[in-house]
Amino acid sequence: MIHLLIVGVLVVVATLGLGLLLTQTGILPAQASQQAITIDWLFDIHFWFIAFFVALICVIIVYSLIVFRRKQGEKGDGVYMHGNQRLEIIWTIVPIGIVLWMAVIGGQTLSDVERRDPQAITVDVFASQWSWRFQYEVTTAEGVQTAVASDVLVLPRNQQALLRLHSQDVIHSFYVPEFRVKQDILPGGEKYVRELRITPNTNGTYTVQCAEICGQGHYSMLAEVQVVDGAEFTSWLTEQAADCNLSDAECGLRWAETFGCLGCHSLDGTAKIGPTWLGLFGHAVELTDGSTVTADHNYLLTSIVDPNAQIVAGYQPNVMPQNFDELLSEEQINQIVAFIESLGN
């Protein structure tokens, strides 16, 4: 009996210690969404159960190992007790009750996390190997419906954002740890578009990560998220909706950022998944078939719209998306070419 009493006290102490360690030391990232608050509430319940069960079993085991070990020179067996039907039934029924209760609150938190707000703003998210693009529907000052694309996900604070997730090649996954939620992104068009709802509640800069392995560039498939005040969001969107009225090369840089070109092509001479653009224009390029071509205007144009036509030696075919002539207007492609030309020397 005295053994059980000591173990009981130790279990309570260990549970408290372990529980406080798990809930109070910040082993979850900062909270930046309404969903995170709900989810962290459920995490805390889990943490206390974990603390209790680890304490219970470990205390009994460690106590037994110390107190009930066979001492030097001792012979003979332990106390003969082969089981207790009532005890077995208790430790079957009680856990069933606990897990059913967990499942019920698990369902409730899920419905909280996925609650729909009809006022949500819609953002189309396009994932491809290995970049992100975010597209907003806006009405310009002239009353024209237009789409704005960006390589940064800008979201207004305290308003639900409905992300419609599209993939152009393989399965990706949208994940921002501070928002606590993720959703896989499936290729295959409208039928496979999946939705994710997030209500950011803290201004700041975060990172979207691809959470589903998607090939060699998976680790670098990142994009910036900015949570800003509502007014700031509106003015940002209006600014983006305006036509690009910069020089061709400057507009080209903007499209190159927006459409993910820079995920694979560097501007500083380092070789990434694709060749660098620095010093490319006007120079000789060796291809996989051994021939050499000069990187002129036509070469660059072909390389964007039909990337498999000429593969540079040392690089793989079928890596670059082959649908840029559909995604981009002719003007935008020409502006990107103009930008690459400006990096020629």
Binding site: L42, F43, C58, M102
Partner: peptide
């Protein structure tokens, strides 16, 4: 036993969907 206990107690946070949204992958 001790290691499998850790494996056991880290299961439920993956089983309740809301917390799995954070922990998955």
């Amino acid at each position: 036993v001790v290691i499998f206990l850790l494996g056991g107690v880290t299961g439920p946070p993956l089983a309740t969907i809301a917390t799995d949204l954070h922990l998955h992958d």
